[in-house]
Amino acid sequence: MSETIPVATRLELLRTMIRIRAFEERVGELFLRGETAGSMLHLSVGEEGAAAGIALAMQPGDTFTTHHRGHGIFVARGGDTQRMMAEIAGKITGYCRGKGGSMHIADMSLGHLGANAIVGGGIPAVVGAGLASKTLGQGSVSVAFFGDGAMQQGICFESMNLAALWKLPVVFAAINNQYGMGTRIDRASATLDFAGRARGFGLEAVEVDATQPERVWIAASALIERARAGQGAGFIVANGYRFYGHARKDKSPYRDPAEEAEGRKRDPILNQKNLLIGEGLLTETEYEAFWQAANLEMDAAESFAKQSEWPGLSTMFEDVYDPSSPPPVPVEERLNRVLGGAL
């Protein structure tokens, strides 16, 4: 395996996973201190191997959509953790000026076509991005990231069919963390062979262990480059475990404690660390240095988010329509106009 993956990438996978976990742990702490906007905070701790493995297999110019548990994917795609944290805190300096929050982070300059709070909602957009890439000769691949929950949504299958039918440069990436909110996957689907399901649509499909990030990277690279070469759309399902509850406050009482303890042992960061140390490519000191750098980065992100301003109230009327059109009229202003006979 190691002969097909550059050493720099192997180290970058580890560094990226550590940054993701540091980010998620930090926003989780901010949430518990009441410093995030709202309670919709879905952490991807435990799933870093899927996010890093697939995201690092993508190229600059590639586009993607993510789901409600998408922070880690965007960190891996180069997302600015300061603007991400500011967005999660609802500040004007955030990626979406505080209007999107945790579940709607997007960055067109990095190909991030948006995180989505509707399970499966962001999947068809990559079919469109793949169509645009093919029609305009952009050479880019578009990747839809979603969870196992979306594997039970109709829009997922409509999108898979179209991407396969039109041989689009598209890859569907299912991160199977075993749970759709509180429902374990075997209570949501009669069959768990999602790769087989995707093959039924004519997609090149592969199933990997999300806790082995190098295997994820190798499999994802093959699918992405195959799609880029015009050989057809692909599907990857990466199986891992959601270490925390559905949202940060959820202590997942619906899960068997023994299952949780076992699940949390399947740690992609420790797996990668041990692999690299075992091969003499990493020392404990270097590993600690990765963590220190990540924690410093999150310190900076946290203070950026905290020091940033709230959006001004008038900004709520911006961005509904293109700026060439007048914004919606505030309700009280309308009321004044009605009573003043000036509507």
């Binding site: 959509t65 076509l113 469109g128 645009a132 952009q138 578009s142």
Partner: peptide, 12 residues
């Protein structure tokens, strides 16, 4: 509709 959305966001 979803395909049209993604295409509209990426240049079509």
């Amino acid at each position: 509709v979803g395909t049209a959305i993604g295409a509209a966001m990426t240049g079509l």
